[in-house]
């Protein structure tokens, strides 16, 4: 479960998040949509502390954090939270000096101190799950973008996280390659993986999400089940954003 209350974040003079609240029960999928610059990626990055919020509280798994400006978090708190989240980046960010298998093994051995044999067993299982069992020994540059992103998903699941975070996972991909990534994400959703997905693919959001948040200018301007948000938006800002996309 994730519970976010009053999250605010400022970069320089720009207040990117101006007080965001949401709750996501375990096993559900949250899609975050909105125009670029609306703060959706920053919100996602606050969930694993790649950005540390200035204000607010965050509960995720067994971690519970409160933020105040200038107060430094203890490294153990930060690492404790990150071990319960897995992140999939827009640009994959696979480790280029390791094979697909090595990418998925790495954190299990370095962070979890698992034995290599067990880590490899889990890594192979995860690669199989994303349909890449046959590519285990390939280095990332030998894989297509879609394959790289699927390895990245396997890597993000290596530590058995409570939540998977996706930052526009298909934005860097051709539509046909995006399809294979979306399929994997849908499969994870059907298996009850808790996920937060920042995306600009409205149709995908509607299909995969249990709940949708529409952000604009650092605030949530519309939220609810996908059918309501997409079909019957209550706010004029949401209606405007969705109608522009529909054109």
């Amino acid at each position: 479960m994730i519970r976010v209350r009053g999250i605010r974040k400022t970069f320089g003079k720009q207040e990117v998040l101006r007080g965001v609240d949401f709750t996501l029960p375990t096993g559900q999928v949250l899609a975050v949509i909105g125009p670029s610059g609306s703060g959706k990626t920053t919100l996602l990055r606050c969930l694993n502390l790649l950005e540390v919020p200035d204000f607010g509280t965050l509960e995720l798994g067994n971690a519970s954090l409160a933020f105040t400006p200038g107060a430094k978090l203890r490294p153990r708190e930060v690492l404790g939270l990150r071990k319960q989240t897995g992140m999939v980046f827009q640009s994959f960010n696979l480790f280029p000096h390791m094979t697909a298998l090595g990418n998925v093994i790495e954190a299990q051995v370095t962070v979890q101190k698992k034995r290599k044999v067990e880590a490899e067993e889990r890594a192979r299982m995860l690669l199989d799950k994303v349909g890449l069992a046959g590519r285990a020994d390939y280095y990332p540059h030998k894989l297509s973008g879609g394959q790289q992103q699927r390895v990245a998903i396997a890597r993000a699941m290596a530590l058995e996280p409570e939540v998977l975070l996706f930052d526009e996972p298909t934005s860097a991909l051709d539509p046909e390659l995006a399809g294979e990534v979306l399929k994997v994400i849908k499969q994870l959703a059907s298996e009850g993986m808790t996920m937060v997905i920042v995306t600009h693919l409205m149709k995908f959001a509607e299909e995969v999400a249990d709940y949708v948040i529409l952000m604009d200018d650092g605030l949530i301007v519309e939220e609810g089940p996908p059918k309501e948000v997409f079909r019957h938006p209550k706010s004029s800002r949401a209606a405007q954003f969705l109608s522009v996309l529909a054109e």
């Binding site: 694993n48 790649l50 490294p75 690492l79 990150r82 071990k83 989240t85 897995g86 992140m87 980046f89 640009s91 960010n93 696979l94 480790f95 280029p96 000096h97 790495e106 954190a107 370095t110 962070v111 890597r155 993000a156 290596a158 530590l159």
Partner: peptide, 24 residues
């Protein structure tokens, strides 16, 4: 992005440096 990927997997700065950044 390499640092961020390492951090997102729960690595410390030293682990990220030793395992991910220095080899590259």
């Amino acid at each position: 992005g390499q640092w961020e990927a390492a951090y997102s997997l729960g690595m410390t700065r030293l682990q990220a440096l030793r395992r991910i950044v220095l080899p590259q």
